[in-house]
Design a protein around this nucleic acid. Sequence first.
DNA 1: CGGGCGTACTGTACCGGTACAGCACATCGA
DNA 2: TCGATGTGCTGTACCGGTACAGTACGCCCG
Lengths: 361, 361
Amino acid sequence: MARVTLQTIADRVGVSRMTVSNAFSRPDQLSSDLRDQILAAAQELGYVGPDPAARALARGTAGAVGVLLTDSLRYAFTDEVATGFLGAIVDELAPSGVALTLLTSDERGEAVPARDVAVDGAVVYSCLPQSNARDWLLRRHLPLVYVDQDPDPEIPSINVDDRGGARLAATHLVELGHRRIGVLTLAVAGTRVSLDDDAESAAVPHPQRERLLGTLEVLRGHGIEPAIEHAERHGDEEAQAAAHLLLAGPERPTGVLCFSDVLALGVIRAAHELGLEVPGDVSVVGFDDSPVAARNEPGITTVRQDVAAKGRLAAVELTAAIERAREADAADASAPPPAEIAHHVLPTELVIRGTTAPPPI
Amino acid sequence: MARVTLQTIADRVGVSRMTVSNAFSRPDQLSSDLRDQILAAAQELGYVGPDPAARALARGTAGAVGVLLTDSLRYAFTDEVATGFLGAIVDELAPSGVALTLLTSDERGEAVPARDVAVDGAVVYSCLPQSNARDWLLRRHLPLVYVDQDPDPEIPSINVDDRGGARLAATHLVELGHRRIGVLTLAVAGTRVSLDDDAESAAVPHPQRERLLGTLEVLRGHGIEPAIEHAERHGDEEAQAAAHLLLAGPERPTGVLCFSDVLALGVIRAAHELGLEVPGDVSVVGFDDSPVAARNEPGITTVRQDVAAKGRLAAVELTAAIERAREADAADASAPPPAEIAHHVLPTELVIRGTTAPPPI
DNA sequence: CGGGCGTACTGTACCGGTACAGCACATCGA
DNA sequence: TCGATGTGCTGTACCGGTACAGTACGCCCG
């Protein structure tokens, strides 16, 4: 049995292929009588509807948008901050009927999703600044939205006031009286990078860099030079291992600023292993206010960001960007008013819970 | 600036369009000399590579596979069992470079992803048995894999021994001496359904039905008729509300079998609110062995299923199904040996932790 | 020296739709 | 009665690629 196409139905009913196409895609273009007849014939022949691939080519619309994630796609499903963000995107997108396609920056193998999969636009979310995959998306001239990326004036972006949040956290510890402070952040691609070298600094993902800058600004302002440790990866074990380095040294900090709640949990566990009380012996501050922070007993003092709002906003901005691109395409020659590109910075907020206290005397 | 296509490059270099196509897609078809020349011209003209939509149409391959989820896509990112499953799929898929597209069964709005988005195959995961979206996928004759669905002989499936697991859980409570037992399950589309009516029973998702059947089999075998409660939705509050109904009644059960760990957690919380000890006054058994079960203090006794294995297997089976479809397409007339359709049933295992004990005297 | 063969490239016919201009015919107002 | 307007359907030309069957030509071998 050969494939059923518009032509098959057209022949059967005795109309032109175009009319059949209209029956499906533009019902107002033909009498409802004929339309019913065509739909009936389609049903009978087992025709499902216009082929998505063909339609995508002819219309220039894929019906799906992408999200570019790390090379470890798995991570996106393990981390509660990431899942919260993605959940909000899909939720916002659902009513419009566009699907979400997960794009990885993983480049083993021939096929590169960011180059080879049809999408109408994409959210660039959790990937390294120098990601190849992001370059592919850029070169395709796809409508993009940057989330938690170094902003580019041409591209709508959504960021969080990471620096301000970090300042709040650092100030909190300083005001409690802490002077020996540790910082726990994430290694980039398995290696520790500092902000001293510009080239290296550019390789650090935006949020981490901002968080470190905000932290150092406050601490150095008080003459404090923190000990900085890097977790190899964003997992429980890695966090705990790095925390051990921080807490087992000679000059053990009385307070630790962590650049995520998962890291903070690692510090708390490491502290317990070393027989230290939190917050009695060590104060711990997290970041993000992910569910783990509230779940922990005691609740983790942390810097809140509204992950759901970030996701929703990303979806809205992407939809808008796609719309703009369509209009620009149509407008053609006319001087297109260079639509305002939005750059959002969402607020952060310090949430004081039970893991911070004045340092031991 | 007009769009750059193969033809643009062909004209520039002075070769046929086909040769340019080969330069990108079949390097062995032309001298490396010419290929370099073509690639250079492409670079210069800002050509990114073959257009995914056009390629999808010509090759009949989209480079993406779908996962059909509930109408609330958000749920897929909230529930740790679901995220674990999806994470395993993407992980397994990543090296091959195929992207994962999230399909919702939500049908507000014109566009229906399951009908309108180009994919090479799909995993049917968490959706109601009578889902329209699933029907679209079926009618498109896409290679499918069913996960946690009522099996269809024609379609590869992956299920878990839910019934066996439920038997283990029920037996565990009975052997501990419990006689007044409650069951907490999930309402279907917001309404409670029993298995008494065949029509209603068909509307219950496979795992829930199996879990209930296994449970009833064991309990009734011991002459026990459990009280059954339904949580409106699979969330913390809903679970707690339903648990209250179960625990606040006149004949309070001494043991509750829950069909997920989230529900179990709801029972534990409700018990505490009512001043009851777990497991002193009430024993609680969960299902799935999701991270919450291990995280809770005390650990929740539960029925383990290997969600990651389920996801990996789904990816493998889907890849195989797509491959089979391709071959069948190529073989054409030759009697295609009706490749064996695999139907997996993964084992379950009772994990006894701290929420079960003999009933109070 | 002629036939066979491999290599490098080309021509044509699709893949399955959609956009848009056109065309026939009916209806309406003056 | 005639042009103007509108409705309903058709024809053609794409969208941007890929498959496959050539063709041209150099080379080896008997």
